[in-house]
């Protein structure tokens, strides 16, 4: 997935699931939109759907430090690239 595709998916999730339209890319999501730990768990489930694969517990725990939309996109980009590499190896 390209970064642009990921951003489009994440923005769609924010609108559909969290009723946040066009979140600013670098603001703290909790401060700006009240995005909390409950939302973070819901977001991870949505990310699994986007990637079409399960996230490991270790991968999920890494997400707990994320604060901004750009960090979410970075996080998903890394996961998508890892899965792409693994799939090419196999």
């Amino acid at each position: 997935m390209t970064r642009q595709e990921i951003e489009k998916e994440i923005r769609a999730i924010f609108l559909r699931e969290f009723e946040v339209e066009n979140p600013e890319p670098d603001v703290n999501l909790r401060d700006a939109y009240g995005f909390d730990s409950i939302d973070a768990i819901e977001l991870l489930m949505e990310i699994e759907k986007v990637l079409g694969t399960e996230l490991t517990q270790a991968e999920k725990k890494k997400a707990m430090d994320i604060r901004t939309l750009n960090q979410i996109i970075d996080y998903v980009q890394i996961l998508a690239d890892c899965r792409q590499t693994e799939s090419e190896k196999n």
Binding site: I38, I41, E42, M45, E48, E54
Partner: peptide
């Protein structure tokens, strides 16, 4: 299956 398990949302208990 895992999909069913995941259907238990994080907020259902709350």
């Amino acid at each position: 299956d895992r999909e069913s398990y995941q259907g238990i949302g994080a907020v259902d208990y709350l």
